[in-house]
Nucleic acid binder design. Structure first.
Lengths: 214, 214
DNA sequence: GTTAAAACTGACCAATTGGTAAAATTGCGG
DNA sequence: CCGCAATTTTACCAATTGGTCAGTTTTAAC
């Protein structure tokens, strides 16, 4: 996964973690992602995670202090990756192209990291207690920064005037829908995921282009 | 709530339910909605629901046979309402107007029924075991029917050619985002929900109009 | 007023849950 | 090989969970 968890940052002890510890922790996190992305924080038990990871529950608790730490480790491991595509939006680039590149990057993520997307969605649905700082901190300030950029482009007549923040919400909503609501999309379109994503990309690119071309 | 649960359909006994029973069941369902919409099926306990409803757990179980019945009753109570706006799309109407009316109706629902939207989202995230028939049944066939209608309008040159199903997904995604991800939207825009929705409506109407006007 | 039905409750049950502690096992360095 | 550290496991704990049951209270019907 992009934004592979930097495990060094997550240990409380001054000791450096061994390679085995890193691997074991990652293995636990992978198992945890499977479960948290389905049933959310409260609906996930440590036994479920341990079973999926193929280790005992106390063994799992040897590497993580508890359920909270596992969950927040997962979330923290993805936040930078989530913000990276928006950060990459380049003030020197062609405006429409930059927005379409962002859209494309978000679709790449939805396609490649559906579980992470659902983990995030589950956390938002429960009111985001573990994401409070992120939402009001780095996400908010980055959205503000890029909204100003978009507004500048619009003021220069390089993009049609729209509300930049709502543009971002619509991009997030549309792209993550294919990850989060995959069972709905598949039920309606069938299970050829590649084809579904390809169609979605084409549709969305048209939509954004029609909206923003001046 | 639109689509107020028809309680008569949900009793196993041949006996007609009294007015008090109807009220009590509704009260339980209201409490349950609060909890299920936050923590999903597995993350919700009967004790939580009972506490919120202000009754004992066995009393709650006097009216419903168990957790499953409460959850499915809630979901079933909203499915018709969820489909109604799409059903209302009128083949005799002006195409763009009909699509915009649908968009408007979906935003009305997102604004008025955020908990129901989150209940639905939670169920989808866990793979929708309680929505399987709905997704592959009435939803799928209605989407098929209305996609054919949209395609006909497009073939007549009354709307721009786009993929109708992906248009529906984008409308669902964008509108429900304001309900499902409300904590994110509020963190970024502030907590004036009416204003946020008003801006969103304007933005989306522009987006859909730009996309579909031939 | 009496009786039966409906509604409600406290106590209880087996299983599950997040976790702890001690014992056992494995790995590593000298 | 030995001693110690790291890792894993078994056993256990108090609390929670979805539910059951019997007793009590309230309501409805006559």
């Amino acid at each position: 996964m992009v934004g592979q968890i930097d495990l060094d940052k997550m240990t409380d002890t001054p000791a450096k973690m061994t390679r085995n510890q890193k691997q074991k922790r990652q293995m636990i996190l992978d198992a945890a992602l499977d479960v948290f992305s389905l049933d959310g924080f409260r609906g996930t038990s440590l036994d479920q995670i341990a079973l999926k990871a193929g280790i005992s529950k106390p063994n799992l608790l040897y590497y993580f202090s508890g359920k909270e730490e596992i969950h927040t480790a997962l979330l923290e491991g993805l936040l930078d990756a989530w913000l990276a595509p928006l950060r990459a939006m380049d003030a020197q680039g062609d405006p429409l192209t930059e927005v379409l590149k962002y859209l494309d990057a978000k679709m790449n993520m939805a396609m490649s990291y559906p579980l992470e997307s659902r983990l995030f969605a589950n956390e938002i649905l429960r009111g985001a207690p573990h994401l409070e700082n992120y939402l009001k901190g780095s996400l908010k300030s980055l959205v503000e920064e890029k909204s100003i950029l978009l507004q500048k482009w619009m003021d220069l007549g390089q993009l049609r005037q729209v509300n930049p923040k709502h543009l971002f919400f619509s991009i997030w909503a549309m792209t993550q829908h294919y990850a989060d609501f995959d069972v709905q999309v598949s039920a309606i379109l069938g299970e050829d995921r590649e084809s579904n994503f390809a169609q979605a990309r084409a549709f969305q690119a048209t939509m954004i282009s029609q909206l923003l071309a001046p």
